[in-house]
Design a protein around this nucleic acid. Structure first.
Length: 617
RNA sequence: GGGGACGUAGCUCAGUUGGUUAGAGCGCUGCCCUGUCACGGCAGAGGUCGCGGGUUCGAGCCCCGUCGUCCCCGCCA
């Protein structure tokens, strides 16, 4: 195989831009062979780069040398084409291609590089399995969909940068090698060569640094920052991920909300999406009560409390214990279920609840039984009202309604934690929502604005009770400020369970996009929080001494937020895994299949770092 | 740490009750073809049925173990 050098040839156009207006022009295109169609004395080469595909014609009669090279060309060869743009003849246009009205008649073809037959073709729509894609990531990334995802990611990041810079934010970098910060995840550690037995930690977030930057008087900081957390992966969780991290001095919650809403509108605009209307606000308590989760997916109707609807008489008929809570929800457009389908669904729901003391009645079934008609109608009316509030369609027989109530002989569990029932039912709501997604179409990635339901969840509890350890833990991180009146009222000391944090999450379609808070800026309040978490002064000093020192030198009120860039892009790309928007992601076991990391290191490297491996039992 | 799905040709998959020589489409190789665009025609190559063990006269199929990928729970403020 003879390969050509580029010589003095320069690319004049990309493969996606030629139009009829350029007919007659002499051009030079460079790219990969997407497909080759060989008709003997006439060969078509589709040449691809990231902007698109252009059809190149190699005619033996017009140019025998170019044609001969075209015979040798194979998919994924890298070529340079010198030729003339020509309008395609009548009936020969390809309306499916942006460049389909023209073709380039080659006068010279250079084979710049050959290519082994790839394990899968970047030109095909069908995608290979995840393992092969990740091993040959460079080929997978050549696919049009992936090229589009990363172009989108670049535009989104740029839109956010521009917005924040315009709002007076400074982009400042913070260290990758630092010490453990107070997030709750496991750290990735970096051994120190100079200080045997000591380790840096990779940041789980730049939390403390950005607060220090506020103390330093930078007023407004942001960073598109890489963060590292050594926890098990999910489709929406990678061990290293990117946050849009920001902090400002003298903020109200509203200040943060306005900024975030502003850059999200800008970011979505670059993807061609106009965010309609406002961002819904909801307290944590309301989110749990109505959705059973702290990140509600509002594309589905909320749960409704039917406790009052079940009158004592109905409870007797239905054998539902008096006074116990009853929760209902609907799955829109699930369709009228056959008896068999209903029985299967019943079994499935029982299975998902397991032996946990919840039972359910389904309205569709009740409707067929005259004795239960009043209940069915009451429930339907109640669910209907709820749907109208959220702009959905009216409840019809196509909609599946599920009503959950504790069983007779309920275990203690639900009684001891008032959130237990709504959380359980909320999980079922999502499960069924996914199960019938094809029917209701509410999760479809159509790109229309109404598919994006934004939500601020506010007033998270400051503390959560750690049953195992028997102590109160910070629900957010220990620099989060409580509501001012929870401090002045004394609740901070006497009623920890009721203390609300000035913490907020931004949620989109059931995904937590970001989380932030107004921080503590006073040393006395900070000390009180540490004390309330059972942390001694010595311990606080040991872990955060430098930060407590900084707090004493004129710390302004400040607060901020961090949003997952990967998740934002994932949703905008219509993808269901972060791997689709991270160029070189890791597998569920945190392995990079392309570079094959992690690996053992040499004995010499280990010795230099004063490390030895031991077998963990 | 736990649960589930998957693993058969380069890729996507089929493979019946355990029974002859494990198939298809795409891709690949060679030849033919001047208007294709998922080109077409003819011919051909290509298999450690993830790996190890077991049951059996006989295992892609059954059993045990193990590895890998994916999804979920725990975990991740």
């Amino acid at each position: 195989m003879h390969l050509d050098f580029l010589g003095s040839l320069e690319r004049t156009q990309t493969c996606g831009e030629l139009r009829p207006e350029q007919a007659g022009a002499d051009v030079v295109l460079m790219g990969w062979v997407n497909r080759r169609r060989d008709h003997g004395n006439l060969i078509f080469l589709d040449v691809r780069d990231r902007t698109g595909i252009t059809q190149v014609v190699l005619d033996k009669e017009l140019d025998g040398a170019a044609h001969a090279k075209g015979e040798a060309a194979r998919p994924e060869y890298v070529v340079a084409v010198k030729g003339t743009v020509r309008l395609r003849g009548a009936g020969l246009e390809n309306p499916n291609m942006l460049t389909g009205a023209i073709e380039v008649v080659a006068t010279e073809l250079l084979l710049l590089n050959d290519a082994k037959t790839p394990p899968f073709s970047p030109a095909e729509d069908a995608i290979a399995n995840e393992e092969v894609r990740l091993k040959y990531r460079y080929l997978d990334l050549r696919r049009e969909e992936m090229q589009r995802n990363f172009a989108l990611r670049s535009r989104v990041a740029m839109a956010i940068r521009n917005y924040l810079v315009d709002e007076g934010f400074l982009e400042i970098e913070t260290p990758f090698m630092t010490r453990s910060t107070p997030e709750g995840a496991r750290d990735y550690l970096v051994p120190s060569r100079v200080h045997a037995g000591n380790f840096y930690a990779l940041p789980q977030s730049p939390q403390i640094f950005k607060q220090i930057l506020m103390i330093s008087g930078f007023d407004r900081y942001f960073q598109i920052a890489r963060c590292f957390r050594d926890e098990d992966l999910r489709a929406d969780r990678q061990p290293e991920f990117t946050q849009i991290d920001l902090e400002t001095t003298f903020p109200k919650q509203e200040t943060i909300f306005r900024i975030v809403e502003g850059f999200l509108r800008a970011a979505f605009a670059t993807a061609g999406v106009t965010i309609q209307g406002g961002f819904v606000r909801m307290t944590y308590d309301e989110a749990i009560r109505r959705y059973g989760i702290d990140k509600p997916d509002m594309r589905l109707p909320a749960m409704v409390d039917l406790t009052e609807v079940l009158t004592p008489e109905l409870r007797t008929t239905l054998k539902v214990e008096q006074g116990l809570p009853v929760i209902g929800f609907t799955v829109p457009k699930a369709g009228v279920l056959s008896g068999t389908q209903k029985r299967a669904l019943v079994e499935e729901i029982r299975g998902s609840f397991g032996d946990c003391g919840l039972d359910f009645l389904d309205v569709a079934r009740l409707r067929t039984n005259e004795a239960f008609q009043p209940l069915a109608e009451a429930i339907a009316a109640k669910l209907n009202a709820e749907q109208i509030v959220f702009g959905g369609n009216n409840f019809t027989t196509d909609d599946l309604a599920i009503v959950i109530t504790p069983k007779l002989g309920t275990p203690e569990t639900w009684n001891y934690d008032p959130q237990w029932i709504p959380k359980k039912v909320g999980a079922l709501r999502l499960e069924l929502g996914k199960k019938f997604a094809d029917k209701h179409g509410l999760f479809a990635k159509t790109g229309t604005a109404r598919d994006y339901k934004f939500l601020w969840v506010t007033d998270f509890p400051m503390y959560e009770w750690d049953e195992a350890a028997g102590v109160w833990q910070a629900a957010h991180h220990p620099f989060t400020s409580p509501h001012e009146d929870d401090i002045t009222s004394g609740r901070l000391v006497h009623d920890k369970g009721a203390v609300r944090a000035l913490a907020y999450d931004i949620v989109l379609n059931g995904t937590e996009l970001g989380s932030g808070s107004i921080r503590i800026h006073r040393k006395d309040v900070q000390a009180e929080i540490f004390r309330s978490l059972g942390m001694s002064d010595e311990e606080a000093k040991e872990r955060f001494g430098f930060f407590l020192d900084a707090l004493e030198y004129g710390t302004p009120p400040h607060g901020g937020i961090a949003l997952g860039l990967d998740r934002i892009v994932m949703i905008l790309a219509g993808a269901t895994s972060l791997r689709e928007v991270i160029a070189f992601p890791k597998t569920a076991k945190a392995i990079d299949l392309m570079v094959d990391a992690p690996t053992p290191v040499s004995e010499a490297q280990m010795r230099e770092l004063s490390l030895r491996t031991v077998t963990r039992s």
